[in-house]
Amino acid sequence: MDQFTVPELYQGYDLIAFGGYVAGRLAAGVASKVVRVDFRGPVPVETPVVRAELDGGGVELRHADGRVLAVATPADGLADTAPPAPPTLTEATRAARALRDGAPADPGTDCFGCGLGRTARTGLRMHCGTVEGRRDIVACDWTPDAVHAGPDGTMAPEIVWGALDCPGNWAGRLLGSQRVGAMTASLTATLPRPVRAGVPHVVYAWVREESGRKHAYGMAVADADGELCAAGEALWIDPREK
């Protein structure tokens, strides 16, 4: 077992750790090309949590009081064997610019992944907007800042996992029926190629299926030539109606 603390920088909702970052921290301890992370409860920022190995190659995250907060396990693969074609870098850049220039539904959110008040040094700015001429994806451009990279100039797994988290939210909000306040219930990903700082990438997401409060999405990160660097699937759950 080992203990770590999620800095407040990596928050999603207020004082709650960003799901993609947490998932990536856990996935790094699972010896599998594809890893699934299931969230059992909110992970607090600036609070020590305990990571422990499980039988079968999984990893569990626990609160100091013993509550299980998240579980990472090996996965067989992703369900989408033929994801939508990626947009061009120009299309993704235009989609992101249009979203920022418009009236996003959550302008006050300080999320590390998609907070509008974040800079490239303090967040990922995953502002995925609709792509002109297409109704199957949302997208944005992403040039990772070196501040988030390791000594070799590549993004740590938790940063790439983070880049896969918020795009699903935008797909649900702009293309599907997801409501404000939804939370990531599970995140599955594979990272076949490194993501390098200072290099333009395309991030895009699509709606796989929706049923009631449950919304399933596919997400991907590709380089400017369309080569896949990361792919994932997420399940988001709407808040219960009052």
Results as ranks from 00 to 15, higher is better:
D2E: 14
Q3K: 12
F4N: 06
P7C: 00
P7N: 11
E8N: 11
Y10W: 10
I16Y: 11
A17M: 04
A17C: 02
F18M: 09
F18G: 06
Y21G: 03
V22D: 01
A23M: 01
A27D: 06
A27Q: 01
A28V: 00
A28R: 10
A28M: 08
V30C: 03
S32A: 15
S32W: 10
S32E: 10
K33D: 15
V35D: 12
F39M: 05
G41H: 08
P42S: 10
T47M: 00
R51M: 14
E53I: 01
L54I: 00
D55N: 14
G56A: 09
A64M: 14
G66W: 04
R67H: 11
V68W: 02
L69V: 12
T73F: 00
P74F: 11
T81Y: 03
A82S: 14
A82Y: 04
P83I: 12
P84F: 04
A85N: 11
L89M: 06
L89H: 06
T90N: 11
E91L: 03
R94Q: 15
A95Q: 01
A96V: 06
A96E: 15
A96N: 03
A98H: 11
D101A: 15
G102F: 09
A105D: 15
D106C: 12
G108Y: 13
G113S: 14
G115R: 07
L116Q: 11
G117F: 08
G117V: 01
T119D: 12
R121H: 12
G123N: 03
G123M: 07
R125E: 10
M126Q: 08
E132F: 06
G133F: 10
G133Y: 08
R134N: 04
D136S: 00
I137S: 02
V138T: 01
A139Y: 04
W142V: 02
T143K: 02
D145T: 05
A146H: 15
A149F: 06
G150S: 13
P151H: 10
G153R: 00
E158I: 01
I159W: 04
I159S: 03
V160C: 04
W161N: 07
G162A: 12
C166N: 08
P167C: 06
P167V: 05
N169T: 09
N169C: 00
W170A: 11
A171K: 03
G172H: 01
L174T: 05
L175T: 08
R179D: 13
V180H: 14
G181N: 10
A182M: 07
T184N: 11
T184F: 04
T184A: 09
A185P: 01
A185S: 14
T190H: 10
T190V: 04
P192Y: 14
R193I: 07
V195K: 03
A197L: 03
A197G: 13
G198K: 06
H201L: 03
V202C: 08
R208A: 13
R208M: 14
E209Q: 14
E209K: 10
V221K: 00
V221N: 02
A222Y: 05
D225Q: 15
L228C: 14
A231R: 05
A231H: 00
G232Y: 00
E233D: 09
E233Q: 12
E233T: 03
A234W: 03
P239L: 09
P239D: 05
